[in-house]
Structures are given as C-alpha cells and as structure tokens.
Simulated scan of single mutants.
Amino acid sequence: MKFGVVVFPGSNCDRDMLDALQYDLNQEVVPLWHKSEDIGSFSTEDCIVLPGGFSYGDYLRCGAIARFSPIMKRIIEFAENGGKVYGVCNGFQILCESGLLPGALLRNERQQYICKNVFIKADGFYRERILDDKAVFSEVYKIPVAHGEGRYYADTATLEQLKSNGQILFRYCNENGTETPESNPNGSIDHIAGISNEGRNVFGMMPHPERACSSVLGNEDGKKILTSLLMAKQLVA
C-alpha cells in the first residue's frame, strides 16, 4: 500500500504523519500539494491521508476552504471510485465539509482548545474486523487530541444510520473502556471520536495516532491504529 499525505497551507501535522508512516510503519509515502490537480499513480489499494492542522487558517469553518482546494476534486473522485481516504483532526473536518463523511465538527462544548491525551475504544466494523482478525490490539487506546472544533454532531437519523451500519469507529472512554461525561473531552454526540462512510473506504477521527507511534514518545497505541490501515482490504471486504 502506498500513502499520499496532502499538504495544505496551515497544515502542521503533515510531517508527523509522513514520518510515522515512513519510519515507524516502513511504508511508501509521498507528499501531495494542495494546488495539484493530479494525485498521481494512486490505485484503490492505496490510501490518501488528510492530516491535522489549521488549513487556510480555519477561516469560515475548519476545513470549509480546504474542501475547495484543487486536489480535493481528485480526492473526492478517488474516494467515489473506492480509493481509501483517511482524515485526522483537520482532515476529519475537511472530509465532513466535502460530504465524504456525514455530520459536522462543532466548537468544543466548553469553548476551549483541548490538547492532551485521551482514551478511545474501537467500535463498529473496525472492532469486529480488527479484533477478530487475529490482529488483537487492545480495545482501549491512549491517543493525543489537539483541537478547538472537535465536537462531532449528526442529526438523529444520521446517528441511527451510523449505529446500524457499524460506521462508528471509535468512541471516547476512560482507561477502563467506560464512557463517562468526564472521558468525553469535547462533548461529541454519543462519545464519537471517529467514523467511516457507508462504503467503508473513507475514515475520519479527531485524535492523532501519528503522535503516538514511537517508543521514544512513550506511546505506540497510534501505531496500532495506523497499522490497521494496512488491513483496509480486509476491513472493507
């Protein structure tokens, strides 16, 4: 699998993602410039990543301007043709703004920027396929968050569809896997930290697994999550 990491003006986690994929996971990875109208030789077996940061300074809404970057037209086509697209933090916001994922990311419940480690647990088809496919990772991961607009929201009908289709990938919880008000850092509806599209080839999450991929950092839980992308063929089968 080859990875492409999009670089927007204001991206500040693109190098983190590039390094995590290349050096911690030993994968082929290339940067993709936001003004490019060509994503190059990516097949549907590959994955394009939208990293975290503050694309276009977060003017209007987070991800609202990046959604109209020239490269996004190609990425939307790539996703619609079955290609895998993965968005983290600002990348998740862009995916929602572009319509590749349902719902929206709103201002954090307490109207404050959050930067800390949180706990999340696998859910939906991600949990079923990953934990049953003998890649038995812990169900609870400690992953950093860093956002001001990370409160996931969807209307009742959309939320019910996410649940019934198993599209909720991760939920915020405490270190024991229990969902409590205190363990939900931003007030996300139903403790949602990450979701997929109905076709299960587009993934988005607010926490930053690329910041937890090395023993040097004292945390490799993020490496487990990124490694699961290498199993995406099994996940979407």
Rank of each mutant, 00 (worst) to 15 (best):
232 A>F: 14
173 C>E: 04
76 I>M: 05
193 A>H: 10
44 T>E: 14
118 V>R: 03
213 C>N: 08
138 S>R: 09
65 I>Y: 09
187 G>F: 02
104 A>E: 11
185 P>N: 05
146 A>S: 15
166 G>L: 13
5 V>Q: 07
63 G>I: 08
223 K>S: 12
95 L>S: 10
82 G>Y: 06
29 V>M: 06
133 D>G: 11
106 L>V: 02
227 T>L: 09
85 V>T: 13
79 A>P: 07
63 G>E: 08
141 Y>P: 00
48 I>K: 10
184 N>T: 11
57 G>R: 05
142 K>S: 14
3 F>L: 11
215 S>P: 00
62 C>D: 02
86 Y>K: 01
233 K>Y: 00
8 F>R: 04
141 Y>R: 06
47 C>M: 12
125 F>E: 12
154 A>F: 00
11 S>K: 01
149 E>D: 14
153 Y>L: 10
149 E>L: 06
121 K>M: 05
22 Q>H: 15
175 E>F: 08
185 P>I: 07
4 G>C: 03
41 S>K: 11
185 P>H: 02
212 A>M: 13
234 Q>T: 03
35 K>T: 13
11 S>E: 04
59 Y>C: 08
62 C>Q: 10
139 E>N: 13
12 N>A: 04
114 I>S: 03
177 G>N: 08
182 E>P: 02
183 S>W: 06
27 Q>H: 04
58 D>T: 04
65 I>K: 05
17 M>P: 01
163 K>C: 01
143 I>Q: 00
82 G>I: 02
38 D>E: 03
26 N>I: 00
21 L>E: 06
124 G>E: 03
209 P>N: 13
32 L>Y: 06
14 D>A: 09
21 L>H: 01
95 L>A: 09
22 Q>G: 14
222 G>Y: 11
135 A>P: 00
230 L>Y: 00
217 L>C: 02
125 F>I: 14
6 V>Q: 09
210 E>T: 00
75 I>L: 07
55 S>P: 15
80 E>N: 13
7 V>S: 06
16 D>I: 09
108 N>A: 07
170 F>K: 07
202 V>G: 10
151 R>D: 01
92 F>H: 07
7 V>K: 12
135 A>Q: 12
69 S>M: 01
198 E>P: 00
178 T>C: 12
107 R>A: 12
40 G>Q: 09
106 L>W: 00
237 A>R: 07
50 L>Y: 02
169 L>V: 07
87 G>I: 05
68 F>G: 01
108 N>M: 09
168 I>T: 10
159 L>M: 13
50 L>C: 05
194 G>A: 14
133 D>V: 02
194 G>W: 07
135 A>S: 13
